[in-house]
Design a protein around this nucleic acid. Sequence first.
DNA 1: TGGTCCTGTCCGACCATGTCGTACGGCGGC
DNA 2: GCCGCCGTACGACATGGTCGGACAGGACCA
Lengths: 239, 239
Amino acid sequence: MPGSVQSLERAAAILQVVAGSGGTLGVTDIAAAVGLPKTTAHSLLRTLLGVRFVEQDREGRYALGPGLLRLGAGHLDVNELRSRASNWTDALASRSGHAVRLAILEREQVRVVHHVFRPDDSAQVLDVGSVLPADRTALGKVLLAFAPHRSVRGTVDARRADVAAVRARGWAAEDGGHEAGTAGLAAPVRGSTGLVVAALGISGPAESVLDRQHQPRPLLVSMVVESAQAISRELGWHG
Amino acid sequence: MPGSVQSLERAAAILQVVAGSGGTLGVTDIAAAVGLPKTTAHSLLRTLLGVRFVEQDREGRYALGPGLLRLGAGHLDVNELRSRASNWTDALASRSGHAVRLAILEREQVRVVHHVFRPDDSAQVLDVGSVLPADRTALGKVLLAFAPHRSVRGTVDARRADVAAVRARGWAAEDGGHEAGTAGLAAPVRGSTGLVVAALGISGPAESVLDRQHQPRPLLVSMVVESAQAISRELGWHG
DNA sequence: TGGTCCTGTCCGACCATGTCGTACGGCGGC
DNA sequence: GCCGCCGTACGACATGGTCGGACAGGACCA
C-alpha cells in the first residue's frame, strides 16, 4: 500500500498470526503465514522481541509478550467494572430505595452494563445491555459532559450551558425526559487515570427523586456522588 | 540499536506513549514525547491507523485502536477466570466436602489464584497468591503435563511416564507428596482455544480422597473432572 | 471580523536502512 | 550416525523510510 510503512504492516501481520495461534509459533511457520522469507520475518521478530511485543520460549518459539499485553491492560474491562462496583451498587439500592444502573459511553451511545432493581416487590425489567438516549437521561448527560475529547464548540449552543453545569456540579439529573413520571440522578465514575469511564445513576418516581420545587433531593445526590467516588477509588482513582 | 528495525522501535514507543496517556493525544504531542519530527511521527501513525493499532477521533487525536486491543483480548485475565469459575468452585467444595483450589502456571511455577475452604468448621488458611511445588502437587502435575510448548525430551526420564499418564487420564493425583497425611486431585481447565489455562483441584485428608488401595475415589475424580470441564465451557471451550 | 498561531496532513528528494539470499550450528527423527 | 529442518548470523544492495517545507483549517483574541 503506497504511503504506508511496509515494515509496520508486516509486523502487525506477524503479531496477528502469533495472537491467532493462541500459543507459540516458530519463525518458519510465522514466515509462511505472512508470506515472507524466513530471514525477513526473523529480522522483524528480533525487533518485536527487543520491544517485548513478543517473547520466546526455550525452543525459540514466539508468543505475545508483556510489552504488547501491557498496552491494552489499562483499558477497562466491563466485567471488572461490574465486579468491583457491585458491592457499592447493591448498597446504594438499599440505602436509596431506588433502582441503580451503571452505564458506559460506547460509540456515542449510552449502554447499561449493570442494573440493580429497586428493593421492593414491584415487577421490574432487567436493563443490562440496553441503550439509553444520551441527551435525555442523567447517565447520558454525565457521560457526554465528561467525554475526554469533546470540544465545547462541537456542542450546539442549547446544550453547552447544560454540559458546563454538569461538569461544574459533578452530577446530572433528569426529570421525565426519558420516561414520564420518573426522574433520575447520575454521577461520574473515574478510572485510575482520572478519566470518566462510566456513570452511576439511580432512578424512580419523580416525587421520590425530586422535592416539591422539582429539585433533586440533596440526600440522594450525596448518596449517588459518594457511591460513584467509592467505585472510582476501587478502580484506582486518587482524587 | 544495531540489528533492529528502527521504524518498529519507533512505532512501539509511539504506542507506549498513546497507551500511557489514557485518552487521546495529537501528533505534535506524540512526536515531542518520542523525540521525532512531526512528519516522521505522522508517517508512522498513518500506518498504525491503517492496521488499526490506533484510531483517531474527529479532532484528529489518536487513541489505542481495536486492532491492538484485540491482540491481547485472547489472553485470559485472572480476575475473569476467578469470576467465571467461582460458582463451580463453590459447588465443588459443597458436593465434595473438600477444599478447592484453582492454579495457573506462571514462569514454571504453580500459583494459586482461587481457594474455597473445605465446608466445615475447621480452621483453614487462605492460599491465594501462594506458590506450590510443581512436581509434587496434583495441580502442578496437571499444569506441567498440559503445558503448550514442552517437548517430551525436555522432561527427565523419571517424569516422562507420569506426564504421559496424566495426559492420557485427563487428571492427576497426589498422595502426601506435598503435605503429609493429605492427598489431592486436579484436572485441566481449558480456554476458548482448547489450551490449558488453569488447573482445578481438591485436597484433604488422604483417607478421604483415596480408598483403601490408595487409589483416588472415582466419585471425587468425576466431580473434579466435570467441574473443570464446566469451567472450561464457561471460558468458551467446545470440546 | 480579520489576523495570528498552531494544529494535522501532504508531497517529494535523498540516503540510510530494511530486505533477503547464503551459510551454519544444533536438534529431532529414523 | 546420518539426514532434514529448524532458528539464527552475516553482509550486499535496492528500495523504502525519513523528514523539511508547504499548506489548509480551526481556535482564539483584539
